[in-house]
């Protein structure tokens, strides 16, 4: 319990010192671009390349 609390506090301190809006926003933005091409873009080359993945991972495909 004590260890847990200490660890949580350490994490909190590190996070508070280092939470990076650039990192959070940048990572999410990068991810959205990747998801757009792999999961949503309908141009034939993206659709055909990612076809089986879209079906397996249950993105709306056709």
């Amino acid at each position: 319990m004590t260890t847990t609390t200490t660890l949580a506090r350490e994490n909190a301190r590190e996070g508070a010192a280092g939470v990076s809006l650039v990192g959070v926003g940048g990572a999410i933005l990068t991810a959205l671009v990747l998801l757009y091409f792999a999961g949503f873009a309908q141009a034939a080359q993206y659709h055909d390349a990612a076809h089986d993945t879209r079906h397996t991972l249950a993105f709306p495909c056709h």
């Binding site: 990747l34 998801l35 091409f37 792999a38 999961g39 390349a49 990612a50 076809h51 089986d52 993945t53 879209r54 397996t56 991972l57």
Partner: peptide, 8 residues
């Protein structure tokens, strides 16, 4: 398809 898995 497998490359796309990694991308996703």
């Amino acid at each position: 398809a497998f490359a796309a898995d990694f991308v996703v």
